[in-house]
Design a protein around this nucleic acid. Sequence first.
DNA 1: TATGAATGAGTCTTCATTCAT
DNA 2: CATGAATGAAGACTCATTCAT
Lengths: 171, 171, 171, 171
Amino acid sequence: MTVALEEFAEFGYHATSVHTIAKKADVSKGLLYNYFESKEDLLKEIIFGGLKTLSDIFDPNKDGILTEDEFDFFIDKVFDVLKENIGIWRLYFSLLMKSGVKEIIKEPMYQYMEPFMKTLNDYYKKQGKKNPEIWSVFFGSVLDGISVNFISEPELYPLEKIKKLIINVLK
Amino acid sequence: MTVALEEFAEFGYHATSVHTIAKKADVSKGLLYNYFESKEDLLKEIIFGGLKTLSDIFDPNKDGILTEDEFDFFIDKVFDVLKENIGIWRLYFSLLMKSGVKEIIKEPMYQYMEPFMKTLNDYYKKQGKKNPEIWSVFFGSVLDGISVNFISEPELYPLEKIKKLIINVLK
Amino acid sequence: MTVALEEFAEFGYHATSVHTIAKKADVSKGLLYNYFESKEDLLKEIIFGGLKTLSDIFDPNKDGILTEDEFDFFIDKVFDVLKENIGIWRLYFSLLMKSGVKEIIKEPMYQYMEPFMKTLNDYYKKQGKKNPEIWSVFFGSVLDGISVNFISEPELYPLEKIKKLIINVLK
Amino acid sequence: MTVALEEFAEFGYHATSVHTIAKKADVSKGLLYNYFESKEDLLKEIIFGGLKTLSDIFDPNKDGILTEDEFDFFIDKVFDVLKENIGIWRLYFSLLMKSGVKEIIKEPMYQYMEPFMKTLNDYYKKQGKKNPEIWSVFFGSVLDGISVNFISEPELYPLEKIKKLIINVLK
DNA sequence: TATGAATGAGTCTTCATTCAT
DNA sequence: CATGAATGAAGACTCATTCAT
């Protein structure tokens, strides 16, 4: 799965052959098919597995309340997670556009994001914003945008300074 | 090329066959290969053609100066361009992650974006921001994020309200 | 299709590979798939094509009436058809038992056999048999039995003498 | 072997996988290969075992003489055996056409059939037929034909009425 | 006696590309 | 300028068979 993740993220789902994965993983194709029903199944397992890992790492405060102090910490945490799981995020974003695969991902992604968005909604409401939902959507889009750009070139992107800007502007 | 763009954007480069493109374009495969050296060549032509088209449509004020009044108009324009060329943008974003294609796109993409970024840089400098470049980068990321989300589900995304928020927050 | 028929008849549908067929037919696998959607489609085309050929050759008297004189001629004709199309009959009988393929064959086979059985029914009724349908079924079974045996070893089976016996016993 | 027989008879030799057989027999593939050298060996064991079983059940009167009274009983017995061992017969008939397997089956099949055919030969000689061997062959073919049809659709075939017809016509 | 993880050759099928016409 | 028949390499997947335990 690690190998497959790398290859999928690097070359895309279709451009990666099962043969390649098996070879790089030093495993026979047959064995691969003992554990995964199909190439698509392998993809699903990676995505769901990744999502699981992320949600384990990134379980929001059980209280579902976000204070201003936590907001800063939150921003930090989000991008730490991003940095540590750059492969899976690259895969995720590369799949996001493709119809067919998109459908597989979207639903669990939403489920994973939901508590986070709810917390955010409450936060912006508490901050006295008129349209907290729009602020949440905006916040999500901003995170996506930064992620896409950061993922594209992790070493060039001025992540730390951008973090400060986010806190400045979106808190 | 139009047909190919649609198919590539919808199903991805690999999942789209030359056969399909030729058929939908009501053209023989042979003829297609008279005009394009390969499937990859066709992709490149689309990308560069698309970039050309976009830069024709979306040429920023030649004076390179952005006033506060123009900022609003600017936001509108950006997303109008996005809406009108959703196919090309979807293609771009879907290719953005793939190594190999990424390299092809990135450079002209930057070139195309450059005057726009410069204008923005000047704008934020004029606004008295300490780190105008970071603001520009941030602005770019925000635009990317919104684009990715909007493109994914154009009819669900609250684009108009988000526009207002941008103007509110990033002007 | 001729090659495929031979191979299918000789080794069976599953034991024959598309590769083999293409090679023996001196044709690329790709071309084969230009004309037939799948291996199964190829099988169907052969069967239906064979059935068509047979029903062209063996169209019963349009009047649908069988006289005693015609009966003799009929027996001759039936086995002539069998001899001339031994390949397809061998294929047919080899497929008859397999569930899955059986279903594909059975219906068109019945359709093809129907006018023949009807004529036979009328014949036995005219001959004063109490259960003409049973006689027809019996006749059909006898023909199948002889066919199976004859097909198995065409050069050993005493077809001519058996013919006389049939006329003797079943007229 | 019972499971394998069922599967082979239902889906054919090639379409049945060792995996399926092992699973349905609630046995590991490894153990299966402790008892049978190969899938083909398993097939052979079934065939020979089946032949043995049949010849045990269906041993003709040791005296080798068939009276007219016994003929009726004989017909009954033949089809009883068929009914009770429908799986094996289906397998036999499905293999009968395949070269390679055919050769394996034919010889023991003949051996098994021989005393029966001899008895029949004597019977027809006693009945004053000019060509008793042809009558025997014919009888064999008729039995094959009825078997093939009956096996194909046991519940639809009018076996009892056909039996009476046989006795009527072939005694 | 029993398991099932592991293998890899082989299966059907697709598809970018060529080329005679 | 245009066709589409033809190719063959490559792809996903299956399955009989082996072997360490």
